[in-house]
């Protein structure tokens, strides 16, 4: 059994595939997931940069590769319809022969960006509406292909410049109707006693809601999680938080529905999110309620006008 304490390879290490003999040079470590380490690599003799993931366990990694392959083939058929062919997501799958054992790896497209919570911290919470929308679009896409993401957390959402969103680490993805393979306690529906760990669209939406609450008001979420004993922890605390906190107000009705699992599917959730983030902007620009001082000033000016007209008439 492999353990997760494998040290990362230093920059400059050359990874040669056992089967296909491709060579990749490690530049640096990009991140460490639950079942592998991801490196930034350069294909030897080429300029392009790729992300290379080395798995701790052949079976786990292959399971992830299976999901990626299936997503890719479905995506490809969709892209052909739309006639925009993106660079392939999954480039190569192979083994690296280290001194004492073979380490499985796969190479994928490299996406530059930062984790969602870091992006929001840097650019400000005004970006939450848009990045949230794009994340929901990604989730809807995944759901429509018959998968749930499972382990949704800020570290697994990559935001590149101008708020483009990508999901990374597909190790927790499972087929709809199956048990969720991998999760993180805060974002887990089961942790809040709010439902099962069976993968359905609402599971991802619940995690998304927690993620948004965290981005908007992390302190409040921490307190809510801490306040109760594990066996009595429930969504009531979350719901009161959603209602109480002014920072959550713009999203409160959406968050409430997601926490209660009331969305029929992620398409519906996406539509409501859209309405929610665009509604206030439109109301703000159009003249809304006329302020009282303006009305009285207007009335006053009419009176003066009448007075002036009368005055002009009599004189």
């Amino acid at each position: 059994m492999t353990t997760s304490s494998n040290p990362a390879y230093p920059a400059g290490t050359i990874i040669t595939g056992k089967w296909r003999k491709s060579r990749f040079v490690i530049r640096r470590v990009l991140g460490q997931g639950a079942n592998g380490i991801v490196y930034l690599v350069q294909k030897a003799g080429y300029r392009g940069l790729y992300a290379l993931k080395m798995g701790y366990d052949t079976l786990d990694l292959q399971s992830e590769i299976n999901v990626l392959t299936s997503l890719q083939s479905q995506r490809k058929s969709q892209d052909l319809l739309k006639e925009n062919v993106k660079s392939p997501f999954l480039l190569e799958v192979d083994d690296f022969k280290d001194r004492n054992k073979d380490i499985p790896f796969y190479v994928m497209r490299y996406i530059e960006g930062s984790a969602l919570h870091l992006f929001i911290r840097k650019r400000g919470s005004e970006w939450i509406g848009l990045t949230g929308l794009r994340l929901l679009e990604k989730l809807r896409g995944l759901h429509q292909m018959g998968f749930v993401f499972g382990d949704l957390k800020p570290e697994n959402v990559l935001v590149s410049e101008y708020g483009r969103v990508e999901l990374i680490d597909y190790g927790g993805v499972s087929t709809i109707g199956r048990s969720v393979k991998q999760f993180t306690e805060w974002y887990d529906r089961g942790y809040w006693n709010a439902g099962s760990r069976t993968g359905d669209e609402a599971y991802d939406l619940f995690a998304f809601a927690i993620l948004m609450i965290q981005l908007l008001d992390e302190q409040a979420l921490k307190e809510a999680a801490k306040q109760q004993l594990p066996q009595t922890r429930n969504t009531a605390e979350l719901l009161s938080l959603i209602q109480r906190k002014t920072s959550l107000k713009p999203y409160s009705s959406w968050l409430r529905k997601a926490v209660l699992g009331e969305f029929a599917n992620s398409q519906q959730a996406l539509m409501m999110w859209k309405e929610q983030i665009y509604a206030p902007a439109i109301v703000g620009k159009l003249p809304g309620k006329t302020p009282r001082w303006l009305k009285s000033a207007f009335a006053f000016s009419i009176v003066i006008l009448c007075f002036a007209v009368c005055l002009a008439f009599f004189l």
Binding site: W19, T58, L59, Q62, I65, T69, V93, D95, D102, R178
Partner: peptide, 22 residues
């Protein structure tokens, strides 16, 4: 073992293992 199979053949085996695990 699974590790000795070429990656292209692993996928089917792992699908079966995943199915049985569930």
């Amino acid at each position: 073992s699974l590790e000795e199979l070429p990656p292209s053949q692993r996928s089917k085996v792992v699908t079966v293992v995943d199915e049985l695990t569930e």
